[in-house]
Simulated scan of single mutants.
Amino acid sequence: MKITRNTPEQLILADNPWFIGISLILFILVFVGAGLGAASTGGENLWFGLFFALAGGGMGFAAFCLFVRRVQVILDRPGGSIVIRRQSVFGYSQVEHRLADLSHAEVESTTSRREGRTRTLYRPVLVLDSGMSAGRHPVVEAYTNGGGPQRLSDAINAWLPAESPAKVDSGSQSA
C-alpha cells in the first residue's frame, strides 16, 4: 500500500496489486495456451490438453479472484470523512466513517508458530474511539511482513494532528 496524496486537506492510501494481477493473467494464458495447443493435435492429447487448460486456467483464475483486490483509503478533512473502498472480481464496497471519530492508527500483529519457528505478520488498523463505528477497522485484510504497515500507521498519525489553521493552541504562554 502506498501514500498517493498527502496534503493538509487529504491523505489518500492506495493498494493496486498490478504485479500480482499481471503475473496471474500470464499464468492463466500460459496454461490455457499450452493446453489448447496440446488439444489441437488431437488423439490422446485432446483430453489431456483440455484438462491441462481447464485445471491450470481455473487455478490461475481462482488465485486472481482471491489475491487481486484494490483498496483505497481516503481521509478527507474538509468533508470530515474516512472512506474505505474495496474492489475485487466479486464487486465493489465502500464504507464511510466520520473523521472526528478517528483516534489514531495502530499496527496489528499476528504470530504463527510452525516447525519451531515463530513468524509475526502485521497490518495497519484505524482505531475509532467514538460513534456508531467505534472499534478497530483494518486498512487491508491481509497481514504482511516488512515495514509497510508501520509506515502507513505513522503517516496517518502524523497527518491527524494537522488541524485547520483556525484552531489555535491555547497552551501556556509566557511574557
Score class of each variant (00 low, 15 high):
150 Q>M: 05
137 H>G: 00
52 F>M: 03
66 L>F: 01
139 V>W: 00
172 S>F: 15
5 R>Q: 15
4 T>R: 05
63 A>R: 01
98 R>P: 05
113 R>W: 06
22 I>C: 06
106 E>T: 04
124 P>D: 11
51 F>K: 10
92 Y>V: 07
138 P>H: 12
22 I>N: 05
94 Q>E: 15
153 S>H: 04
77 R>Y: 01
34 A>V: 13
4 T>N: 09
16 N>Q: 10
48 F>T: 06
46 L>D: 08
74 I>A: 07
67 F>L: 12
20 I>R: 04
110 T>P: 00
167 K>W: 10
93 S>L: 05
32 V>E: 01
35 G>I: 02
173 Q>P: 12
109 S>L: 06
15 D>L: 15
90 F>M: 11
65 C>G: 14
53 A>Q: 06
166 A>E: 15
119 R>G: 13
89 V>Y: 10
3 I>F: 11
154 D>T: 07
56 G>P: 01
133 S>L: 04
100 A>N: 11
53 A>H: 07
83 V>C: 07
119 R>E: 15
94 Q>M: 13
40 S>C: 08
50 L>R: 05
6 N>V: 01
71 V>A: 03
14 A>Q: 13
128 L>H: 02
18 W>R: 12
94 Q>D: 09
102 L>S: 00
20 I>S: 04
2 K>C: 11
152 L>N: 03
27 F>A: 01
66 L>G: 09
133 S>A: 08
92 Y>E: 03
92 Y>Q: 10
35 G>P: 04
142 A>F: 07
139 V>A: 05
100 A>V: 05
99 L>C: 09
22 I>S: 07
44 E>G: 07
98 R>I: 02
2 K>W: 03
43 G>R: 03
95 V>A: 06
68 V>S: 06
121 L>H: 10
97 H>R: 05
4 T>I: 15
115 E>I: 04
100 A>K: 03
52 F>W: 11
138 P>Y: 11
150 Q>N: 02
81 S>A: 13
23 S>G: 11
53 A>T: 09
36 L>R: 08
150 Q>P: 01
80 G>Q: 14
156 I>F: 14
159 W>D: 15
121 L>C: 11
153 S>N: 07
163 E>V: 15
90 F>I: 04
148 G>R: 03
36 L>F: 12
109 S>W: 14
159 W>V: 13
12 I>G: 01
